[in-house]
């Protein structure tokens, strides 16, 4: 019995540790979910996927994205099993059988609350849910500040003809409205997208795009684009390859039960651009 208890505590502890590392690193490094390829022909194809948080795109060198955070949805929005999965130190991997025709979505979605307060000279930190925060004595700590970070990391793959059901924005957090389908991007053409915050177009939002293989370049060569008044932006792909797109939005502070709550949302996408 004690053994089981120990095991349970250990499990939770290791999860918490992984989580702390993740949330810390999520802010400083690049998260990505990368499919072996994003366009498939033929029946019942397999896609192999890597998920990591690293400095270089797309080379694992820092931390894995936990498998339990990753969800795969088929073209009709039904959950699909991750198969042959493994969670390593610096990379998670899994495979998915694409049994249906259309576009699949793979990604993580999270909403986390962080608190900071002063304990004398020292700054203390806490994380949990909003309910836990208000149920605890955290809310009465000196100089307490509360923040909510919501994030999305996603990628898309298509078997046969691309479909749009799974692309529909959810209206929550920061996300993309795909005016151009993410599995229909070709060098020499333009991709058009709309950045949405809580389902509304985000004007003047900053979008950063980096091509993979930056390890073999001396300059990151990032493309930085600001969204227009209808939240839209257009990208001329410089060449074919794998790309990483990221955007974040500060939503300012609001008061919740007398506590200042600062909100921030981020969005990350990996995708392929094919040669013409």
């Amino acid at each position: 019995m004690i053994k089981i208890m120990n095991k349970l505590i250990w499990c939770n502890l290791s999860k918490l540790l992984a989580f702390l590392v993740l949330t810390q690193s999520a802010l400083a490094h690049r998260q990505w979910i990368l499919p072996s390829t994003s366009i498939f022909s033929g029946k019942d194809q397999w896609v192999s996927v890597e998920a990591a948080i690293s400095n270089d795109l797309f080379f694992p060198n820092h931390h894995a994205i936990a498998l339990e955070q990753i969800q795969v949805l088929d073209p009709e929005g039904m959950k699909v099993d991750l198969q042959n999965s493994a969670e390593g130190k610096i990379r998670s991997t899994f495979e998915v059988l694409l049994e249906k025709e259309g576009t699949y979505k793979m990604g993580t979605e999270s909403s986390r609350f962080f608190a900071r307060w002063k304990d004398g000279e020292e700054t203390k930190r806490w994380r949990g849910t909003l309910e836990e925060f208000f149920a605890s004595e955290m809310k009465d700590k000196p100089e307490v500040q509360l923040a909510n970070y919501r994030s999305r990391v996603e990628t898309f793959v298509t078997s046969g003809a691309p479909s749009r059901e799974i692309l529909k924005p959810t209206g929550k957090g920061l996300e993309l409205d795909f005016l151009t389908h993410p599995n229909d991007l070709f060098a020499g053409e333009k991709g058009r997208f709309r950045l949405l915050l809580e389902g509304e177009p985000l004007e003047n939002g900053k979008v950063t795009i980096v091509q993979g293989n930056d390890r073999f370049r001396n300059e990151v060569g990032e493309i930085i684009i600001m969204t227009n008044s209808s939240g839209e932006f257009e990208v001329s792909w410089p060449n074919a390859g794998r790309f990483w797109l990221s955007a974040s939005a500060e939503q300012g502070a609001q008061e919740v039960n007398g506590i200042q709550l600062e909100k921030r949302a981020s969005y990350i996408l990996t995708f392929e651009v094919l040669p013409d």
Binding site: F40, S41, G42, Q45, D184, F186
Partner: peptide
């Protein structure tokens, strides 16, 4: 098992414009 269809996507433009549908 119609395995030959796996590589049709490599005819990238044809696959995109016609084959996939």
């Amino acid at each position: 098992d119609r395995e030959g269809e796996t590589w049709l996507k490599d005819l990238r433009q044809w696959w995109r414009k016609s084959g996939r549908s």
